[in-house]
Structures are given as structure tokens and as C-alpha cells.
Design a protein around this nucleic acid. Sequence first.
DNA 1: CCTTAGTTCATAATGATTCTCAATAAAGTC
DNA 2: GACTTTATTGAGAATCATTATGAACTAAGG
Lengths: 174, 174
Amino acid sequence: MAMYDAADLRSELHQIGCRLTPQREKILKFFQNLPQGNHLSAEDLYHALSQRGENISLSTIYRSLKLMTRMGLLRELELAEGHKHYELNQPYPHHHHHLVCVQCNRTIEFTNTSILKTGVKQAEKEGLHLLDCQLTIHAICPEALRRGWPSLLPSHWVCPRTLNGTVTGVITEN
Amino acid sequence: MAMYDAADLRSELHQIGCRLTPQREKILKFFQNLPQGNHLSAEDLYHALSQRGENISLSTIYRSLKLMTRMGLLRELELAEGHKHYELNQPYPHHHHHLVCVQCNRTIEFTNTSILKTGVKQAEKEGLHLLDCQLTIHAICPEALRRGWPSLLPSHWVCPRTLNGTVTGVITEN
DNA sequence: CCTTAGTTCATAATGATTCTCAATAAAGTC
DNA sequence: GACTTTATTGAGAATCATTATGAACTAAGG
């Protein structure tokens, strides 16, 4: 599969009456170079780009994330942090879903081939065009339950799993 | 199946060191009496209860929604309106998922038995306790695509489908 | 009853996201 | 390449859902 590049972006933007700007190109490229399993908030992206010497204003970041999500290039994730995260919207077989611990916000990615099929089927049935389809599993770790969750944990308590290990990673089903 | 009532709520609250208050009881009862397929924002709930003469402050509404979601009694839905909606978290076979048109916010519910199984399986694999599992499908209607979506539509444009019909309803798969 | 600790209410504060508008710059045309 | 049109950017103000604060209140066990 050839890489989706600036020319493709330009072409899709033009189709909807929009222009290719250096800002949009850099933002897309940034996501394309991000390792699998990473997802960023608007603020994260703003700082990451600033560190690279790319000064793109926060308003432009927000506008671009929204537009690219609507174009189906990015996915908007509603995990448990109180703000949205974004990642590249990759087709099958990279399409994946998220399991989140609602106490410590640890996020685990997993793949499942039948979910996307279900999504397509449901959208078709309603005569709609699918943009994205996400299974989000909210769960709680036994450590937190043992400590009296959902009410007794101080909000700053961090699940010991989180302290040791991986924050995210892709896991293939079965 | 016997109805989950005030005594059950009291018992579950006590297990986690919380108390049964008239406010919490009324909020739960309100959701239990809501027709299938309805979901409310915090503000919606506040106004609905006010109309019934139940003056529960907005802060209490927010706190109760959060607590009850963490207890697994309610589900927090992230649809496309810019704020959260809540509904009763009902077990199989009432457990369902949502298809949303990102332009007009029309929401369609559908059931699918295998998704919940996938959720349980994934949570178990990580040694976590499942709280909720939601497949959210984002889609766009052909009317909006024809009018140049994602960029050219005025934000106040309403998809003609929305004007005619049902806003939500439960659809059973197949 | 009495005591303890969780809860409520009103309001202030927060913080993510959106809006505004003047300045800038794509991109098609001559 | 210069010209024109119109989308886009950047900085900061504004919005609005949600959360925090603190004094008054009350559930619940003894």
C-alpha cells in the first residue's frame, strides 16, 4: 500500500473546498511518524511540534484535528482523561480498539476483526457512510477495587500496575 | 428479575462507605422510569427533575452521575454533542450500542450480543473488572456528503432525515 | 438523642475548546 | 509572474461543561 502523502491530502482537501497548508501537512506527517499505540491531545501535539521548532498555534491545532477527524484521517478518542486524544485512523488490519482502566487511565489496545464488520453493516443498514467505529471498554483494576473504589480512593492514588509498566501497547486477539 | 430498588442502592452505597440520600434515590428512579432509548445530559436531568418539583442542585446532579457511573449503574455516553449523556446501564439482553451521524447528531441504538462477550474477554485477559463496553459508530449521512461535508456545511444545517423522523430507537441486529 | 463523617447547595474556579477578526497566503487566472 | 479571490492562520477573548470550595445539613450507627 502506497503511503498517503501530501499530494493525496491536497487532493482530498480540494474536493471539499479546502487548501493544503504547511500546518496541515506537518500535523498529518507528525501522526504518520508516531509509533503505533500513541495518541495525543491537542495540547500534547502543540508541545511536540513546538519542540521540533514548528510553531503552529493552538487554534490551528484544534481546527486541524477537527477537520482531519471529519475527513476520516484521524480518530478522536474519548478515553478517561477529561480531554480528547487523537490518533491516525488506520484501516484494517491496523484498526483497533481500547480498554481503559477508569481509575488509573491505563489504556490497552486490542484488535478484533468482527467489530469493524459490525460497524460497516450497521452504517449500511441506515444508509450512512462509516467514518469510524470504536469499541471502548471501561474497566477497573482489582487493586483499586480492594482499596474501596469507586468512592474511597484519593483522586491522586495511582494503580501500582501503572507505576511498573507499559502504558499502552497493541495486543492481538486470542 | 426483581427491580433494583432503594434498598439495593443503599446496600451498594454502604459497601463503599457512602450513604443513601433522597437525591440519589430520586435520580436513580428517574433513570429507571425513562423510556428505553433516552439519554440525558446533566443539564437535561436537572431541568427534568426541576419540572417535577424536585430541586436537586446541579452540583449534586454532576456528582451523582459520576458516582453512579463509577458504580456501574449508569453509562456515560460520548456522542457528538460536546457534552456527556447518561442512561441506565442495563445488562444483557438490553445492553446496546450507538450509531451517530456526526453532522446531525441523530443517534440510533442497536444490539449485538458478541460485543459484550468481546468486552468481557478482553477485560478478563488483563485481570480487570468490566464496568461498561460501548461500540460507538460515527457515520455521516449521504445528504451531508452531497452538500460538501466535511467543510462546506453551515453549522446550523440540519439533515433532512432528522426533520422527519425518529431521533432514536432500538434496532435489533439482523 | 448524640456524634461522626459523608452530603448538599451555591457559587467561584477551572480548563478544554471555540470564536473573533485582522493579517496572511493558497491557488486559479490572465 | 502579478492579480484576485477566498480560505487560513495566529493571538487572545469568550464560552460552557464540569469540578472545586466551604459552610450548613443530615444519614446512620451507637
